[in-house]
Design a protein around this nucleic acid. Sequence first.
DNA 1: AGCACGCCGACT
DNA 2: GTCGGCGTGCTC
Length: 720
Amino acid sequence: MTSRIADVLIPLALDTAYSYAVPEGLAVEEGDVVQVPLANREVAGVVWGMRDGQGGNLKKVTGVIEAPNLSPRMRKFLDWIAWYTLAPKGSALAMGLKIPDPDRQEVARVGVKLAGPPPKRMTPARQKVMEVAQDGTVRLKSELAHAAGVSAGVVNGLIDEGVLETVTLLAEPVAEMPDPAFGHTALSDGQREAADTLVAAMSEEHAPVLLLEGVTGSGKTEVYFEAVAEAVRNGRQALILMPEIALTAQFLDRFAARFGVKPATWHSGVTGRKRERLYTAIASNEVKVVAGARSALFLPYADLGLIIVDEEHETAYKQDDGVHYHARDMAVVRGKIENAPVVLASATPSIESRVNVERGRYRHVKLPERFGGRSMPQIRAVDLRKEAVPKGRWLSPTLVAAVEDTVARGEQALLFLNRRGYAPLTLCRACAHRYECPNCSSWLVEHRFRRSLVCHHCGHVERTPHACVECGSVDSLVPCGPGVERIAEEAAELFPDKRCIVLSSDFPGGTERLRTELAAIAAGEFDIVIGTQLVAKGHNFPLMTLVGVLDADIGLTSGDPRAAERTFQMLQQVTGRAGRGEKPGRALVQTWQPDHPVIAALISGDAERFYEEETRVREMAGLPPFGRLASLIVSAAEREAAEAHARAMALVAEPPPGVTVLGPAEAPLALIRGRYRFRLLVKTEREVDLQAYLRSWMARCPKIRGNTRVSIDVDPQSFL
DNA sequence: AGCACGCCGACT
DNA sequence: GTCGGCGTGCTC
């Protein structure tokens, strides 16, 4: 006798769907969320396929859970992600599935209001409730109890007696309907033309990918809002992806100015019931526009008609734990599957996107000038070989003069140094002992404010010692080199009456306080901002007219093949902070190598030339313009590491045709949290099934001895 | 993710 | 002797 069998994918790190028998009379369809027994517990999973067969020895589907059905397109997308990222299918599903918490269902919105005469038996608690309810307004049950300072039981008692009556409240809408005709921002000719191109792309049979490039302040947001408006007019959904930090009140206000309401937002801070409601409302096409961080890409949109990836070059789009993916690339794939146009917006597009434009895979839409006739900041180099900086100082006389000048006019200056802490290296004056991390052999960075030495690689923290741990000398520690804290000290000495603030990712007080301080800066409550990368993006500081880059050379010499590109983008972003308000801005870039291609391109403003040069350099080095970086991770005890390394190297030494493994052959192993890790650049022809190849690596080298294992991490930034 | 099984060090 | 640390493997 045959019966129906459901292949159910469970959102755990499992690579295959498990088969369950469907009991007679239970309606189960592909994409349904079902409850199934697994080992000794019940879990939720999604029906990935249905078939007929002999299901006698299988466990049975327990029931169907009331949750949005995952569409075939969504399942295809998740399958693709699992294949592409080498992640178990179940892990991919875990990103796109939210199971409603049955306990939360009870929190129904029940309102109560005064309905009858006072109760026969009056008590002090009841009296308080009556006083609050006297005005006759409808309140949530819990609110009324709280306002009266009594327990919910008292309110329930009054309801039973008929003194209060319950009113069913309509669920609070998760998001309001954006109105595409609400506000019309005046667009420049250039903006209008770009907007028309995007809108026209939305009615093409095969949805294209468009790279929207425009310098900082050219009004990209207003341009892609027109595409969003078109999606809403067509009754389809639009997703605006952005790096988490860019989801600011500023952005939401701009959206509201165009559409009359704020968009629904999705990020790690949206939790609980709100998260559930939003999830189902997106699945039922009630919510039209979602602005969200990368995880918003995995929501079950009913009818997705447009994806915007704002700041597409941002590395924050990479997810580096669990399933490794790059949200920008996955957005392109989802757009293909949903047949929705994808707009990649950036002032400094990534090399991959540029190459995709060159090869005709993406379309290029350019916005030439700053909006409102504002000019780009004037950028000048300060050649540190020619201009001496006083010993123990890091600001050149030219920069000091410029800062003085700027703050004297009541404008703001930004001093940019991409180094957290006080000093990147600390050593002992007496014995030259260098403070290193016990876990991962990198320098410990002194954080004077926290009185500790911190490893920026693995997070190890220890208290700054009084006496040298090696030779015992007291007060012998010497800081070497500058960090932002040290620059703040220098700025305080140079400009004692000016208000300075240091911003870095270890800002005390967390994101909340950081947001307040960013707003305070925008409001002009500080004169000098000293900051790391953090200040390069997101926030707008209208009073900032000077940006000083203290050391443009940082990062140019790191071994990362993408170092030049990343440094160029970062410097372009940070110098672009100047002059975004009424007054024109300028930037001073301190450097030891003004002729370096990155610095030269920055000064001349010729990004095009830089990208051409960079692409050529990579080709000469045998690197594809955008290849795949695979990290080979060897988990091994220290004494077994050498053998593990040798075994892994032997494996990668014989790649199949079409695959080239580019060094490092004798890479020094870096020990990070008990794992030796090294990176390999894998160059492949497009046709090669890299996934199959990498999987064969893992299959052929499952373990070396005991708990020594080899696994592969694929760098999410890669070709499509 | 949970949960069981199993192999080694510290002790009521 | 056992308690319990977590490393390893399995879940239709």
